[in-house]
Design a protein around this nucleic acid. Structure first.
Lengths: 340, 340
DNA sequence: TTGAAAGCGTTACCAA
DNA sequence: TTGGTAACGCTTTCAA
């Protein structure tokens, strides 16, 4: 048929038994050598023979067999929801991942969008991860946590604005973002503050807490806060801008820089002066904001450094059964530019 | 110590033997029932007893044991480089993933940034994936392909602008992006065309091919193309804008919308009129471009629909040893707005 | 210093 | 219709 011969022959996958045969030793010896087992002394010539045999055959150990025998894996599972995310988020994930790799964990992302929460937890559990770090964008109920723990996960950790009962929590408290923006606006003398609420599903997760933080800061400063639902479309922005004067607002916190740009453009097109008539504050402190005119004031966020976090995960894995811990990751401060 | 008792007891993980014991049947029967094995008839009462026992124990099958026994897994490994990517890219990945899930594959992403190419391939091979789909941002050499094939991967597929010898290739031919932009500019009567070359490592992968496509289209239209290295900073953009008049260009293709915005802003700040003095074209057709003034002309890209792609992967897995195939995924056309 | 053998959780073959 | 058993690849204990 289409069984054309290729360079890497369609042969059977080499096992440690093949290596042993070629090196003229037992499988045990192969295991000792390749795992640098110090508890047992192997002669240097033997070591060399084993190594050479392994290389010659292109032997790669079988992770499944290994963890089956060991009774546990070193896989850390990171369910993902594939939301386009910010550079900050990317740096964080990458840092966490390489931190864990340094501790000899295998980090694996498992796309879980559109799965029923229970199915998802079961699917993760089948892989018998030693730890699961679930972002808030992925549904994880106490039910799912129980399944994971029963299947041997030593640590179940959530990552997001909300903790989940029974799991450890790395908290990115988005309320601080909204609060920082509103405090900034209060300092600039604004008291009637709109807060853009993205209608899209992805941002919705963060939008609620940001609004709550904005409300809290506003209450402390005798300011008024008004929710402003907005789709990420020009039409929606234009519609909002058209009724802007009826809202009686002198400032707006626009969820993030992208929504801020969308709204600011619509406001300007509708003849509303920024910042004179209305101050605008975004969030993410992206390059985008610096390129707008007026330059966009924006909430800058910083996440905790990651090596300590990887160490934390490691500690939780080694001491399962500790009370759920909470760790606050997010710091926010507003960078003042021209739009406010 | 810190061994506080928790709700999900620290007990042993339930196995199919436990389910069998509780249901009063053999392990084989459990396997038949839970896998809906049709080759074997099991009485309904037995089925029910087994199912109930499994639920009661919270039994989840052990994927490693299963694939060890089966001699193969259904894992598709997707090495990732964690570049912040476009919504288009996200939609594509998510679609491919759910398409493969529908075909009963387990899709897993493996962050591989900063790994030596050979180490990376070995690490992937340890998981014994049935297929590997490696984006161009992840280094994969013929050496690595051989390791993967030897370890049982039925299909090794690259995804990006360049094919790799020995692997199947899903090609996103970025040359077409540059060519489309330049053809558009030629139609608008421009003949001295700058092409922005991002100095950052991430975009560099796409920048070369886009430039090559631009050159090809320019040659066909007797136009001149000039490379313009640019860092993604305001300073770099300002520096480029400052020497703009000495370049004698009447148009620029700016790699993507973000770089286009950066450059367009710098040009405007330097008093250069867009599009009168210089036409600007971006790429990605993002919301960003529609919000700029003048509105940004941009190359819109479309990727092939994904279910056929998932089917393709499935076919390659079922017919290993077929000649490396190439499939072209990318379509590009330029959307004309005000900046050109 | 090395080897033989058991066992991890599954599934598939063959008997009963 | 159901059960016993062997085997997948690996590590580790015990014996030589």
């Amino acid at each position: 048929m289409s069984q054309l011969t290729e360079q890497p022959a369609e042969g059977p996958v080499p096992t440690s038994a093949d290596v042993a045969r070629l090196a003229g030793v037992s499988r045990a010896t192969v295991s000792y050598v390749l795992n640098n087992n110090t508890a047992v002394r192997i002669s240097d010539p033997t070591r060399r023979r084993v190594r050479e045999a392994a290389t010659e055959l292109g032997y790669v150990p079988h992770a499944a067999a290994r963890s089956l025998r060991a009774g546990h894996s070193r896989m850390v599972l990171l369910p993902t929801a594939h939301l386009p995310s910010t550079p900050l988020h990317h740096r964080f994930l990458h840092g966490l991942e390489s931190g864990l790799r340094r501790l000899d964990y295998t980090v694996v992302q498992y796309g879980s969008i559109g799965l029923d929460p229970d199915d998802a937890a079961r699917a993760w559990a089948e892989l018998r991860p030693v730890a699961v770090i679930a972002p808030g964008s992925v549904p994880l109920a106490p039910q799912g946590i129980a399944v994971l723990r029963r299947s041997g996960a030593k640590a179940v950790i959530t990552l997001g604005p909300q903790p989940v009962p029974g799991a450890h929590a790395l908290i990115t408290d988005q309320r601080e973002v909204g609060a920082s923006a509103v405090r900034h606006l209060l300092e600039r003398g604004r008291h009637r503050i709109g807060v853009v609420m993205p209608a899209e599903a992805g941002p919705a997760l963060f939008a609620g807490p940001r609004l709550a933080g904005a409300r809290r800061a506003a209450a402390a400063g005798r300011a008024r806060v008004e929710e402003l639902p907005l789709h990420y479309t020009e039409e929606s922005a234009a519609a909002l801008a058209a009724r802007w004067s009826t809202l009686g607002l002198d400032a707006v916190f626009a969820y993030d820089d992208a929504y801020a740009m969308l709204l600011m453009r619509a406001l300007q097109d509708a003849g509303i002066q920024v910042p004179e008539d209305t101050a605008v504050v975004g969030a993410d402190d992206s390059m985008l904001g610096r390129l707008l005119r007026p330059r966009l004031s924006s909430v800058r966020m910083e996440l905790a450094t990651v090596q300590p976090l990887a160490d934390l995960v490691d500690r939780l894995v080694r001491h399962p059964g500790t009370e759920p811990e909470r760790h606050d990751l997010l710091r926010a401060r507003t960078v003042h530019r021209e739009s406010s």
